[in-house]
Every structure is written in structure tokens, then in C-alpha cells.
Simulated scan of single mutants.
Amino acid sequence: MPEAIIETTGLTKSFKGFRAVNDISLQVLPGTIHAMIGANGAGKTTCFNLLTKFLRPTSGRILFKGRDITSLKSDQIARLGLVRSFQISAVFGRLTALENVKLALQRQRGESYDFWASHRRLDHQRQRAEQLLDDVGLSDAIDTPAAELPYGRKRALELATTLALDPQVMLLDEPLAGMGTEDVSRTADLIRRVAAGRTVLMVEHNLGVVAELCDRITVLARGEVLVEGDYATVSNDPRVIESYIGGATHG
């Protein structure tokens, strides 16, 4: 088995005595799509915020490619190659799709917007931005203001801005939330395409998409890992059926 690209040991987060996440050990393998699922209050969001450094753990360690990143900040891990979608996905409504991606490309280089850059650099930047938009199916919306894009296509633009940072690991927090059936199918296909050559860790409630997309699934319950494995293993575990799938099925 290859070495984990993200690994946690004993990851714990307490809020005034309440343990939202308790002693989580997680391994995300390179080149996989890994889902984190669980009922409301299971600790998914807290765990995700710990991994992406929006929260500091009470105890435990987080490793990226064998390096301890527990004490690093979110911008530091982004530069290492761990990019959480919403960190750069708040698109600018008045800017076109192309301008949004070009701004993200500027952030990837750690510079301000290049108003006076050479024609060669600007041409290369435009070509890269156009390619990213094509990758997410927005080649026909280059000059469309982001505010005018339908919800599903706006989420595709957010993925394009995430990809502009050339991440090794994409951390997607409920990327299909609020989407209709057609947008869910289109965005799931998009995630599969952009995951090629990358690692994806996602929090997601749509079990149909998880079953179709994900290589490995971690189920959380009451802040702890309930079970981990492929979809067949997870979906047939009696504890999962009782605490999550059964609850979702029976309301």
C-alpha cells in the first residue's frame, strides 16, 4: 500500500469540554477520491476544518506527505499543495468567468494582478485560464459575468479557480450541496475528470454520488470513525445502516 498523502493520528478537537472530534486516525492515499460522510453532528465539518487549518486541534497530529503540518496555517498548507475549494471559490460576481480564473492564477503565483505584465505573460495566462474553463465545461461562458451563471455552472467556475492553484490535494466541502439532479450529475462527472492525477478528499451527503465516485469512505459518528473502507464494505456494515444510511432512509 502506498504511503498516505494525508494522515492524522489521535486528532481531537474540544469546545469547552465537548469533544466534537475524538481521536481520529485517518489515511488518505494518493491518487484516490476519498469521502467523509456521516449524519448531522457527526464531526465531518470540524474534522475538515482541522485538516484545512481553519481550526487548531486540541491534540493529535496532521501529516502531509510525511511532513507534520499540525502547526501550519491555511495559507501555508495551500502553498504546499492542499487546497480547499471555498478558500478561493468566492467568485467575483461582476467579473467574467475568465477574469475570475485569471485572478486565481495570479494568486497561485503569489502576486498582485498583472496590469503591466508583458504581452507574452498575459497571453500565456489567458490561454491557461481558457484551458481551465474548458476543463470544467465553461468554454462558452468566458465573457459571462459570474453573477449571471446558473448555480451549477457557478460551482464549476469555483472548481476552475481551485484548479488554478494546481493543487496536489483538493478538499471539497459538500461540492454538490443545493444542486438539482442535472447539475449533480454534471458536477460529479467534472470532479471525476479533474481528479485525474490528483487526490480528492470530500465531505458529501449524496450517497449515490459517493458510491459512484469514491475509492474509499470514512464514516463518522459522534466525532469518531465508525467504519472505513470501500462503498460495499461501508454500506453493508450494520452500524452504518443503523446510524447513518438507515436514518437517512427512514427520515
Rank of each mutant, 00 (worst) to 15 (best):
K13T: 02
H119E: 14
A97Y: 05
T181V: 13
L98I: 10
L95M: 15
N49V: 08
S59V: 04
G178A: 06
E130T: 15
T70F: 11
G152P: 08
L138P: 05
R153P: 00
A39C: 01
F92D: 01
A129Q: 10
R193Y: 03
D123P: 02
Q87T: 06
G10R: 13
L226F: 04
E111K: 14
L133V: 10
H119I: 08
R193S: 13
A177P: 08
A97E: 08
T199H: 07
P145W: 14
E242Y: 01
G93M: 02
S118W: 04
T70L: 07
T8S: 04
R61T: 15
Q87W: 05
F92S: 03
V219P: 03
S139V: 05
P167I: 08
G43C: 11
R19F: 15
P150N: 07
A20C: 09
G17W: 05
L226Y: 01
L95G: 03
L11V: 00
R239C: 00
P150I: 12
F48Y: 11
M1L: 10
G110K: 13
L103D: 07
V28E: 14
V21G: 11
V21N: 15
N40E: 05
N206F: 00
I245V: 14
D173L: 07
M202S: 10
V210I: 15
